[in-house]
Structures are given as C-alpha cells and as structure tokens.
Simulated scan of single mutants.
Amino acid sequence: MTDTAPQDSSTSTDQSSHYILNREYFTECFDQSADTTVSLKTYRLAILLIIMSAVLFIVEAEPHIAWFLLALGAVELLSIRYKRSWWVARQMLSRRANSRVNVRIDEQGIYTDSKHHQQSILWDDIAELKTTEKGFIVIHKGGTNYLSRTGLDKDFLALLNDKSNAIT
C-alpha cells in the first residue's frame, strides 16, 4: 500500500489511492474481516466426512472411497485449524497476488480497478460500512469488501468516516 493523491483537483471529495495485494495486505484483510469463531458448526463438514468414511469402513465397501473421504475430513480439519494461513496462501496463489489495485472514492461511491477486476460500489448499494481498527468493512448488495486505512490520506479517511456515519 502506497501513496495517495487527489485524482481530480477540481473535486475535493474525489480521492484515489492504490494497494498492492501482497501477503501483508491479505493478512490484514483476514485479521480485520474474517469470522474466527470456532463452534460445532465449524466442524460440521469434517465430522460428516469422517463419519461417512467410518461407515464405509464398517460395511466393508470400496476402501479407496473410504480412505478418500477420511483424507478429505483430515484436510478439512487442517483448514479449520490453520484457517488464516490457508486463506492467505490461497490468495497468494491466485492470479491477483502482487497486483496493483487502484481505489477511488467520490460522492457516488467507491471504485476499484486492477488488471484482473473492476468494481464499483455505489453509496446507495452499501448496507453497512463498519469501521475496524485498521480499515473499513464495506457490506453491499454484491458481497463484502475490506478497505485498509494504510496508505490513505486524511481527506480520504474523513470522507469514509462521514459516509460511515451517514449509512449507519
């Protein structure tokens, strides 16, 4: 995440910045926005896979399928235990890793654009704009996005805070 600069000097509320989607950004994104509560519901799929494999072992069905389901259950348990590392590693393996994302905010909404994806989130489409310790969670019709405070200048943050107060 690097410097910010006004994109159009004629509009004081039009701000832009850019981020590099690197390991630090993905880690911050996960830490600030992911639900890390662990309950029985979290383990539901792993338990189901292990039970299905146990049933197949008991009825002496095809052992390859039973072993496969048992392995899937183990992988699911590992993905729960190492949820953060698992998610960050998957993001780092994606084609978006280490790419630059330009972010622009104005009176109409928040706009992001990179080599692989363009998105516009209009203020009318935003249901909630949560402020976190290190950024903002934008909940909108199309899903949820995270916007880090790092690299954003004071005007950009002030506009986001104003919009956050207006939405909630």
Score class of each variant (00 low, 15 high):
113 D>E: 15
21 L>P: 05
73 G>L: 07
149 R>M: 13
151 G>E: 03
54 A>F: 10
149 R>V: 10
149 R>P: 12
17 S>F: 05
148 S>L: 02
24 E>W: 01
34 A>S: 09
157 L>H: 06
10 S>R: 05
150 T>C: 14
74 A>I: 01
98 N>A: 02
45 L>C: 12
31 D>V: 03
104 R>Y: 11
109 G>W: 04
67 W>Y: 14
32 Q>G: 06
74 A>E: 12
132 T>K: 10
125 D>T: 01
166 A>F: 05
18 H>G: 10
4 T>W: 07
150 T>Q: 13
166 A>H: 04
20 I>F: 06
15 Q>V: 11
120 S>A: 14
74 A>V: 01
66 A>Q: 02
11 T>N: 14
26 F>R: 06
34 A>M: 14
60 E>C: 12
81 R>D: 04
47 I>D: 02
49 L>Q: 09
139 I>W: 09
35 D>R: 08
75 V>D: 02
53 S>L: 02
165 N>P: 00
28 E>F: 01
61 A>R: 07
139 I>C: 08
94 S>C: 09
40 L>N: 12
34 A>Y: 12
149 R>K: 05
167 I>Q: 02
36 T>E: 15
4 T>H: 09
48 L>A: 06
115 K>P: 06
147 L>W: 07
152 L>E: 09
44 R>S: 15
105 I>Q: 01
141 K>L: 12
167 I>R: 03
15 Q>T: 10
33 S>E: 04
20 I>Q: 10
77 L>I: 10
166 A>W: 07
97 A>D: 08
49 L>D: 12
166 A>Q: 06
63 P>R: 04
100 R>T: 11
90 R>F: 13
68 F>Q: 05
96 R>M: 14
4 T>F: 07
109 G>E: 09
100 R>E: 13
147 L>Q: 05
68 F>C: 07
17 S>A: 05
30 F>T: 09
62 E>Y: 12
19 Y>Q: 10
144 T>A: 13
114 S>T: 12
153 D>R: 09
44 R>M: 15
67 W>R: 11
133 E>W: 08
168 T>N: 09
86 W>L: 09
11 T>V: 11
14 D>E: 04
45 L>H: 04
96 R>T: 14
146 Y>V: 03
39 S>Y: 05
142 G>R: 00
139 I>V: 07
142 G>N: 02
138 V>K: 02
1 M>L: 09
90 R>E: 14
59 V>Q: 13
167 I>V: 00
61 A>Q: 15
99 S>T: 10
18 H>D: 03
51 I>W: 01
32 Q>R: 12
39 S>M: 07
3 D>L: 13
